[in-house]
């Protein structure tokens, strides 16, 4: 029986830039940041109130994980905004939307009412998009 998600993976174009985005803009916390061999880095972050879920910020570059062709294709797809990576929730969408917008986060959809609550869509610094929701059960 599967019980929990402990790690999920977001493919990013640049780990330093992703670090700045997820920590300084979204307010996530660093869980683990260690070198992985001479040219790689294992970087995971957690949502502020979910310390048990590690989001791996995994760089897409040519190497042992991706060959040159795959890497080029992945980078193109990420930049195009192909990948929707996760749904985040917040206590109050309008307050969070205003704060993140003020910090320069780009929204591809402003808050709208949905049957389950309210939802906006934002992009990370690589191009991955996320749903940011305030669920009806939240308040």
């Amino acid at each position: 029986m599967i019980t929990k998600v402990t790690h999920m993976c977001v493919y990013v174009l640049d780990q330093d830039s992703a670090y700045d985005f997820y920590i300084n803009k979204l307010g996530f916390k660093v869980h683990t940041d260690v070198p992985m061999g001479p040219n790689a880095r294992w970087l995971t972050v957690t949502p502020p109130e979910q310390p048990e879920l590690e989001i791996t910020l995994f760089p897409v570059k040519e190497g042992s994980t991706f060959d040159a062709e795959t890497s080029k294709t992945m980078i193109g797809l990420i930049k195009k905004g192909t990948f929707g990576a996760a749904v985040f929730t917040c206590h109050d969408l309008m307050a969070t939307y205003e704060e993140l917008k003020g910090k320069g986060v780009i929204f591809k959809k402003p808050p709208t009412k949905e049957f389950y609550g309210f939802e906006a869509l934002f992009c990370d610094d690589s191009g991955n998009w996320f749903s940011l929701s305030q669920l009806n059960t939240e308040k």
Partner: peptide
């Protein structure tokens, strides 16, 4: 511990993709 052996922080499935 992580400094001595960084792989302790990393699930094996990911470590293997790095050839580790």
């Amino acid at each position: 511990l992580f400094k001595q052996n960084p792989l302790q922080a990393i699930p094996n499935c990911f470590a293997e993709t790095y050839g580790l």
